[in-house]
Design a protein around this nucleic acid. Sequence first.
DNA 1: TCTATACGACCTCTATATCAGTCATTACTT
DNA 2: AAGTAATGACTGATATAGAGGTCGTATAGA
Lengths: 112, 112
Amino acid sequence: MSKSAKRTYSAYSSDAMHLLGATIRAERKTKKMSQQELAERAGVARSVIQRVEKGDMTCGVGIVFEVAHIVGIPLFSAEPSRLAHHIRQVEDKLTLLPKTIHKKKKVINDDF
Amino acid sequence: MSKSAKRTYSAYSSDAMHLLGATIRAERKTKKMSQQELAERAGVARSVIQRVEKGDMTCGVGIVFEVAHIVGIPLFSAEPSRLAHHIRQVEDKLTLLPKTIHKKKKVINDDF
DNA sequence: TCTATACGACCTCTATATCAGTCATTACTT
DNA sequence: AAGTAATGACTGATATAGAGGTCGTATAGA
């Protein structure tokens, strides 16, 4: 966004992040960890943990994933050992798809 | 991370983002969308789409979620309508948990 | 009760993510 | 085979995320 035009997000994305943040907070408390402790484990400032738990969309995705992982939240409902397998699956699929997408006609159905 | 101490991520987080990026690319192609088109729909620069599809951990979580949603990838394997429900569930759970987490005294095992 | 501390809400500063381009190469479409 | 569009890999400028702190309040434990 060039100027100070604030970025907008769909309700779905906002809700998803809100849910993730609340889940992280719940799991942290369940595991009896303080924000400070979680911050140290993740290697980030406490202020960042606060933003993550509030569902701030501007946090780095790597930080959010890392924090979620530390408190034991599975990403994509996949166990660690299955991720590599899924990656291979998707990459196999990618080799079957065209390398570039050329638009010729209208094909896309907008669902907004 | 004050200086140029590069942030590190666990293999699980890296794999998860790698998988997400590859899945986004695959879904974009399946839907016959170009990077440019996806960028415009998401309201970001094309270079950001490239980084997202490469699994760059430093992308904003909001941008990644938004892009994933546009190409039709469900977050947390939850349908849009279920998210609000899950949010309430977690927030109910939160009210039952302590507001602050005080570290209990170190359990002393100084018997060596 | 009393007290150490976890938390929320701020702040400033610096590193960097994002934007908006360019260019060369590749790969679709006709 | 030619033409055109898509992609990958860059760039510089600028907005902003994250670091690291402060302060006041609230809370869990003793």
